[in-house]
Design a protein around this nucleic acid. Sequence first.
DNA 1: GCAATTGTCTCATCATATGGGCATGCATCT
DNA 2: AGATGCATGCCCATATGATGAGACAATTGC
Lengths: 276, 276
Amino acid sequence: MDDDGSVLTETPERQQVKGTQTLLRGLAFLECVADGVGDVKGIAARLGTPRSTTHRMLSSLVAEGYLHHVPYKGYLLGPKLIALGGKALEQRPLVALARPHLEALARYTCDTVHLGVIEGAEVFYLDKIPGTRGLEMRSRVGYRMPLASTGLGKALMLGLPRNRWRALYDRAQELSASVPDRPPLAPWPEFEERLARYVGDGWSFDLEENEIGIRCVGAPVRDIRNRVAAAVSVASAVPYMPDDRMAELGPIVRATADAISKELGWTPELTPNGPR
Amino acid sequence: MDDDGSVLTETPERQQVKGTQTLLRGLAFLECVADGVGDVKGIAARLGTPRSTTHRMLSSLVAEGYLHHVPYKGYLLGPKLIALGGKALEQRPLVALARPHLEALARYTCDTVHLGVIEGAEVFYLDKIPGTRGLEMRSRVGYRMPLASTGLGKALMLGLPRNRWRALYDRAQELSASVPDRPPLAPWPEFEERLARYVGDGWSFDLEENEIGIRCVGAPVRDIRNRVAAAVSVASAVPYMPDDRMAELGPIVRATADAISKELGWTPELTPNGPR
DNA sequence: GCAATTGTCTCATCATATGGGCATGCATCT
DNA sequence: AGATGCATGCCCATATGATGAGACAATTGC
């Protein structure tokens, strides 16, 4: 049993598995393939399993439809994962409730609409409705982004205590540094000042801070306890997003977010102005 | 390898597993939860595992993010499955290649656009772009439907040999009978005759056969070997889909499908008229 | 052509998951 | 309100089931 620390995967915490390391190992295969390592040798090296075991596990996963196998070429994630991902979305009442509102917003704006929630220090994209202007966003359902980098994420940050903003800002900046084509964030004082303003407004802007050429307007969705449970955003290319349109869009996006909030049991009276 | 048509709804028991029954069992938990069985007792009963084991496995899956646990309420599919589902889609070159074409089609028609492939006797929804007319489709990425029930599925059937049509027709009719609010299929002779006509046209219609009030136009996508690899469809409510518009849409949907086909290496010259 | 990688199989070994049992605490029923 | 059912969490002896080395065939690519 690989008790030495030679498994240098992404998992930082070594969990003291209670009695399912076969299952966990199998799941590790999935994540390995998800990360683009599709060849047997690479997988075996990454997980530290001998070829025999690697083959056995991969075969089982293929047989169950969790992986797709192209002989002598490699492994890809399988259709069952697509299906389970879809079901996972259906099981989230938030997604089902938000859909009609997101569609209405997409129809009104003709731009790409996103729904996301916080996961750790990142925003997790739960739903996406592509815009009808013919430009592609590389976001996808299941995608992640640092909170401080996107309008969606910043809307989510509005619900967090201010003393946590800095850490998230730093986190996003780390990623900006590591990825070459990513624009830098605004300087911290300016960033904080803007975010403070967004708290008062009830919506947030992203001015090409995440991706050059893309601007976006976001707003937080609150649950029955007035906690930020999700966020909505509208994104489009700069030519479609002049300053005055963004100013118009702010209240509209907020209205959509509030409508979803109401579906979650939120009552607007409790927050005439000011968060939490 | 989709040669055996004996894949029933679910594999009840198979025992020729080579050596990963722990892993397979764990995956069975996921599918169990996916089917809506979220309580411990139900899961244990369904899979025949004692409570101890059930808990241990569920805990591991929760710890890994594959399941989400609401204490004393039940289990739901977790965020990691959403993420893996998204990655699984990204890894399919078909989805990435088709996206721009689907978006263009959605933009042009203002209606809901679907992309699907064959899986067994069903159509598997790989992508969906909601229409901008404000009506909701209950389809979702990862969804399944009998091939013969939908315009998308019928487009896929155009690539199958005619002697397999009947079996798929019967299969769809079984489901129609079991689900109460599902409209019946057209009688077989008429169904076959229509499908034969669609082969010549290169597109297919669905006249409220799958869902009352929904009409749809589909067309097959072919790969480099001229085999049907996927299908595209446009769906909308009847008021938006009069006969003459459907007739117009046929060549347009086909053109979109052909454009995707070309991205897959398909060459139109090989099929002036007539399939395979 | 050769070399490297992958697929398929067997088998002895022992590590691994098993599942019964029991204690605690939450939730729903009457 | 009280009471029962159910979920959760943990221990541990057992044998079941996964392990991994090895050998060979099939395939790709150079």
